[in-house]
């Protein structure tokens, strides 16, 4: 009862990285609260295959739901799994990935349980809360911290009265760390039919194509990222050229993606990928918090901007006052000259 739960997302028999990141965070939260960490895995043919990908993160109890209709993911059966399990287990916290699955499932579960859900958190902490209106004091609430309003503010959200306190977190925001490869957790194979009525299997998946990610932004050690200041799709060609000589990956800010300069899957930031490269070269990026949230852990930040007062300059290690058009070719030129 009152434990921390993590919903593990599974593709085939592969537990997704975001879930392992959340298990690591969930373990820490459970330690702070002095409770256990439990995990939920739902899929088809997963028994015997997912345990070793979940338990080592410090999971005390793993609930496995293994049935044909549970893979590929569809909304209603997975909702039924969580809603009925949570009614039974009364968790105080539930975490899930802020990707297509988690953002489809989370709101549905929160609505059914009338519990609060905060999307796309960038930080989770435990702390007290005083409700100014009712004068009530709460201990050990989950602080769900996220940028809001297009990234111009950072809000701390709490759910004082309703349980579970639910939060989604994007992939890459937390760090996955194996606690103990031989961690002894209990595995419970649940009877799916008890949780999911036949009537819930309504969506038919007719066709499904999943490709490996086209880019390797998450693992890149150098990233050349472009913002609205790059000016055009053609302007991005220059960034690709620089990335090629540096063996770097190209990323983009939301403004550049919205303007059509770059593909959606290149977006770095709260609503995109979170990255931690050694070197981050921000080209014409003003630095909205929504972007900064996804790259501030970078080792060295170089900002190329014609606006001396661009917010990103305050977190940059090197600021180059100049236009992208003028500076990027020089970077390419002098890199070629000096590296040989």
């Amino acid at each position: 009862m009152n434990n921390v739960f993590v919903y593990c997302e599974i593709e085939g028999t592969q537990v997704q990285e975001v879930s392992q990141e959340l298990l690591t965070k969930g373990r820490k939260l459970a330690n702070t609260l002095g409770v256990q960490l439990e995990a939920v895995a739902a899929g088809s043919g997963i028994t015997g295959k997912v345990e070793s990908q979940i338990l080592p993160y410090g999971v005390d109890k793993l609930h496995i739901f293994d049935a044909e209709g549970l893979a590929p993911y569809t909304s209603k059966p997975h909702t039924a799994v969580l809603v009925n399990l949570f009614k039974q287990e009364q968790p105080q916290i539930c975490l899930m990935g802020a990707d297509v699955v988690g953002r489809d499932l989370g709101p549905r579960v929160s609505s059914a349980l009338h519990s609060g859900l905060t999307a796309d958190c960038t930080s989770l902490e435990i702390g007290p809360h005083d409700d100014k209106k009712t004068g009530k004091h709460y201990d050990n609430l989950l602080y769900q911290i996220r940028p809001a309003f297009g990234g111009n503010i950072v809000a701390t959200i709490v759910n004082p009265e309703n349980r579970p306190q639910m939060a989604t977190v994007r992939s890459g925001v937390m760090k996955a760390e194996v606690l103990d490869p031989n961690y002894k957790g209990e595995v419970v194979i649940e009877d799916v039919a008890k949780f999911v009525p036949e009537t819930e299997y309504v969506t038919k998946v007719l066709d499904r194509h999943v490709q490996a990610a086209k880019n390797n932004l998450k693992g890149a050690s150098i990233i050349v990222a472009g913002g609205y200041g790059v000016g055009s799709k053609e302007g991005f060609e220059q960034l690709y050229e620089l990335a090629k000589v540096l063996h770097a990956e190209v990323g983009a800010s939301r403004a550049a993606v919205d303007a059509g300069f770059a593909d959606h899957d290149l977006q770095i930031g709260q609503t995109g990928v979170t990255v931690r490269p050694k070197v981050y070269i921000a080209c014409g990026i003003s630095g909205a918090i929504q972007h900064v949230a996804g790259m501030k852990e970078s080792g060295i930040i170089i900002s190329i901007n014609s606006d001396e007062n661009a917010p990103i300059n305050t977190i940059a290690d090197y600021v180059i006052n100049g236009t992208v058009e003028e500076v990027v070719p020089k970077l390419i030129k002098y890199y070629k000259q000096n590296s040989k």
Partner: peptide
């Protein structure tokens, strides 16, 4: 159910 505790 969700309350804004703090905005920065």
């Amino acid at each position: 159910p969700t309350k804004v505790k703090n905005v920065e």
